[in-house]
Lab assay of single mutants.
Amino acid sequence: LKKVVALYDYMPMNANDLQLRKGDEYFILEESNLPWWRARDKNGQEGYIPSNYVTEAE
């Protein structure tokens, strides 16, 4: 899975979204639905995130 790091905080707009915290790492599960990607956080929560809020992890 592709790993990304959040560049900004993101508060979910609806139940399908995943909250982002700046500096945290996330795994990308699906990239087909631009600009929204399906992601999983370190706690196993899954949801959609804005792809322009993250960058690929080193």
Rank of each mutant, 00 (worst) to 15 (best):
Q19M: 12
A39N: 01
E30C: 10
D24C: 12
N16R: 11
L18C: 02
L1H: 09
Y10D: 01
T55F: 10
K2Q: 05
D17V: 09
A15N: 11
I28P: 01
K42P: 06
Y10K: 04
A57T: 12
K22E: 07
P35T: 15
V54R: 01
N16E: 12
Y26V: 04
D17K: 08
K42I: 10
K2L: 07
S51F: 14
V5F: 10
F27K: 04
T55C: 10
K2T: 07
D41A: 07
Q19A: 14
S51Y: 14
R40Q: 08
E56Q: 11
I28K: 02
E30V: 07
Y26W: 00
P12N: 04
Y26E: 00
M11H: 13
D9L: 02
K2A: 04
K2D: 02
V54F: 05
N16L: 11
S51G: 07
A57S: 14
R40E: 04
D17A: 11
N14L: 07
W36I: 08
I28H: 00
R40F: 06
A15I: 12
R40C: 07
V4I: 04
T55I: 14
D24M: 09
W36Q: 08
P50K: 06
N16M: 13
N43Y: 14
N33A: 14
K22V: 08
E58V: 15
P50Q: 06
W37R: 05
L1V: 10
M11I: 15
E46L: 04
Y26I: 05
N16W: 15
S32E: 08
K22S: 07
K42M: 14
Q19I: 08
T55K: 13
N16P: 05
G47T: 01
Y26A: 02
N43S: 11
I49W: 00
D9R: 02
R38N: 05
I28S: 01
S32K: 08
P12I: 04
R40H: 04
M11G: 06
M13W: 06
D17C: 13
K2C: 05
N52E: 12
V5E: 04
G44V: 01
E46N: 04
G44R: 04
A15V: 12
I28Q: 02
V4S: 02
L18D: 00
Y8T: 06
E25P: 07
P50I: 05
W37Y: 13
A6M: 01
W36C: 10
I49R: 00
A57P: 12
A39I: 06
D41W: 01
I28V: 10
Y48M: 14
D24F: 09
P12R: 04
R38C: 09
L34C: 13
T55M: 14
D41V: 00
A57V: 15
M13S: 11
G47D: 01
K2N: 05
E31L: 09
K22N: 04
M11R: 11
D24L: 08
R40D: 02
L1D: 05
Y8D: 07
Y10G: 01
K3P: 04
K42Y: 07
N52R: 11
N43L: 12
Y10T: 04
W37A: 06
I49K: 00
Y26S: 00
L20Y: 01
E31K: 09
E30T: 07
P12A: 06
E30S: 10
W37K: 07
N43H: 13
A15M: 11
L18A: 01
E56W: 15
E31Q: 13
S32A: 11
A15H: 12
K2G: 04
Y48V: 07
E56Y: 14
L1Q: 07
N14P: 02
Y10W: 15
L18V: 03
P12W: 02
P50V: 04
A57L: 14
L34I: 08
L20D: 01
M13I: 14
D24K: 05
R40M: 13
M13E: 12
K3V: 12
E30G: 07
N16D: 13
Y48D: 06
N43C: 11
V4Y: 09
K3S: 06
N52S: 15
N16G: 15
G44D: 05
N16F: 12
W37M: 10
I49L: 06
L1M: 11
D24P: 00
W36V: 09
G23V: 01
R38T: 08
D41L: 01
N43R: 09
E58L: 14
L1S: 07
Q19L: 09
T55A: 12
D9E: 04
E31P: 07
E56N: 13
G44A: 04
V4H: 03
E56S: 13
I49P: 00
Y10P: 00
A57Y: 13
R38A: 04
A15S: 12
L7R: 05
M13C: 11
S32M: 08
L1K: 07
Y53L: 10
D17G: 15
W36K: 10
L7P: 01
M11P: 07
P35F: 15
W36F: 14
G44N: 06
L18Y: 01
D9G: 03
R40V: 11
R38L: 15
R21T: 15
V4P: 00
S32C: 12
L1G: 08
N52V: 09
G44Y: 04
M13L: 14
D9T: 05
D17T: 09
W36P: 05
E25H: 14
L29A: 03
A57H: 10
F27T: 10
V4F: 07
W37T: 08
G44S: 04
S51C: 10
A15T: 12
K22Q: 11
Y10H: 06
D24Q: 13
S32H: 08
K3M: 09
Q45L: 14
S51W: 13
E31S: 13
K3D: 01
T55Q: 12
Y48W: 15
P50F: 09
K2S: 04
Y26R: 00
Y53D: 02
G44T: 02
Y8G: 05
V4N: 01
E25K: 06
P50W: 09
D9I: 02
L1A: 07
M11K: 12
N52Y: 12
L34Q: 13
K3G: 03
D9V: 02
L29G: 02
D24G: 07
P12E: 03
Q45T: 12
Q19F: 07
A39R: 00
W37L: 14
P12S: 06
D41F: 01
L7V: 08
D41P: 00
Q45S: 12
K42S: 11
L29Q: 03
T55L: 09
Y8C: 12
A57C: 11
N43D: 13
M13A: 11
Y53F: 12
N43V: 08
N14E: 08
R38W: 15
G47I: 02
S51A: 14
R38P: 08
V4G: 02
E46V: 09
Y26P: 00
W36D: 04
S32V: 09
M13G: 08
W36H: 08
E25S: 11
E46P: 02
A15P: 14
V4M: 07
G47A: 01
Y26G: 01
N33G: 11
Q45W: 08
R40G: 03
K22A: 13
A57M: 13
L1E: 06
Y26C: 02
M13Q: 15
G23I: 00
W36N: 07
G23W: 04
D24N: 08
Y48Q: 07
R21S: 09
P50Y: 09
A6F: 01
S32I: 08
G44W: 05
I49Y: 01
L18P: 01
K2I: 08
R40Y: 05
E46R: 03
E58Y: 14
A15E: 13
L1T: 07
L7H: 04
L7F: 03
A57E: 09
P35G: 15
E56A: 14
E30N: 08
I49Q: 00
G47E: 00
V5Y: 11
L18F: 04
Y53H: 08
V4D: 00
L34E: 15
L29W: 05
M11F: 15
V4K: 03
L20N: 00
G44I: 01
E30A: 09
W37G: 02
I49V: 08
V54H: 01
R21H: 14
N33D: 15
Q45F: 12
I49T: 00
P50G: 03
Q45P: 02
I49G: 01
N52D: 13
L20M: 08
A57R: 11
S32Y: 08
Q45I: 12
L29V: 10
Y53I: 04
I49A: 02
N16C: 13
